[in-house]
């Protein structure tokens, strides 16, 4: 069972929208700064965005999960 609540679900969808907006990072478009002297900032930023996406989706599974899991199969785990 998830902790679904309409308010939390709205917040999650706002965060997903924010991710999509943050994806258009015009602010790092022409920066050639190297993070730790190795990774271009534009790539580092988008790698962080992937991590942030994972976190937002984790929150979504906790607070905005669309189904109560009442239909679990009886036959065990991964096969």
């Amino acid at each position: 069972m998830s902790n679904y609540s309409p308010g939390a679900a709205r917040l999650i969808w706002a965060l997903v929208l924010l991710l999509i907006i943050l994806h258009q990072d015009v602010w790092f478009w022409e920066s050639d700064y190297l993070v730790l002297g190795i990774m271009p900032i534009g790539l580092f930023y988008h790698a962080c965005l992937s991590m942030a996406a994972g976190f937002v989706w984790y929150l979504a599974t906790l607070y905005a999960w669309p189904l109560d899991d009442i239909t679990s199969a009886k036959n065990g785990g991964d096969q």
């Binding site: 992937s50 991590m51 996406a53 999960w65 899991d69 679990s72």
Partner: peptide, 19 residues
Amino acid sequence: ARSAEAFKLPVVAHPIFIM
């Protein structure tokens, strides 16, 4: 999928795996 719960891990881990 065995259950709806089974989707939770793919939903969360997919962006990280891509990275």
